[in-house]
Design a protein around this nucleic acid. Structure first.
Lengths: 104, 104
DNA sequence: CCTTCAGTTCGAAGATCATCTAACTGTTCG
DNA sequence: CGAACAGTTAGATGATCTTCGAACTGAAGG
């Protein structure tokens, strides 16, 4: 059975501004998002952050439940990507203003 | 003595993204900023929020120290204003994307 | 099959946070 | 002066957050 189970993340219209602000109010999570902006989809191990695996997993959950990232299973890896388009729809220009880069 | 003591708030270039995100990651503070965007400078008592005066004071401190608002003493009142221009300089488009309004 | 690997879940510890009441400071006005 | 007013500060409380190590799950590979 090929299950491409998408982990729970809110639909675009339900992305809440408080949740997004909270998700971005942490240096580690900000680093994660910045690396996703620069490098695109990555596996958990591909991030250059100095926290334990369990802490990193916690941060992914916060970002995912806020609607900032998406995660999909792929074999032994869990691929993480930024919901750039959805964020651009819900809060146009947010990524650009916060990270100083143009949304890809 | 006419003291127009400006309460401590960081210079524009030192406004930190984590502090700003954290400042905006609270419903009450978000309401405060929204009301400042709509109504301009206001005294503390002019805000329509359902928290005690001391809690409101706490939220102003968080917003001020993050660089989101400015406060100046005027007689018996403390006037609060949004640092729209500084925020626009530091994070262009942020207010617009978060609040869905054009920066005045 | 059994080991390794990628990542999560489960407590737990310590820090930070939002909120309140009570007491305080400083200003205005009668 | 003395009372009323605007807002802050202090201290406490309960909730939430970040972090970790240890144990777990599920997939890949020898």
């Amino acid at each position: 059975m090929v299950h491409s189970a998408v982990l729970p993340s809110p639909p675009t219209d339900d992305i809440d501004v408080v949740d997004v602000m909270h998700a971005l109010a942490d240096p580690t999570r900000l680093t994660i998002v910045r690396q996703l902006l620069e490098g695109g989809e990555q596996a958990c191990g591909g991030f250059d952050v100095r926290v334990s695996a369990s802490t990193l997993s916690h941060h992914f959950k916060v970002l995912r439940e806020a609607g900032v990232i998406d995660q999909r299973e792929q074999g032994r890896h869990r691929m993480t990507s930024l919901r750039s388009t959805d964020l651009e729809t819900r809060f146009p220009g947010l990524l650009t203003s916060v990270f100083g880069v143009v949304h890809a």
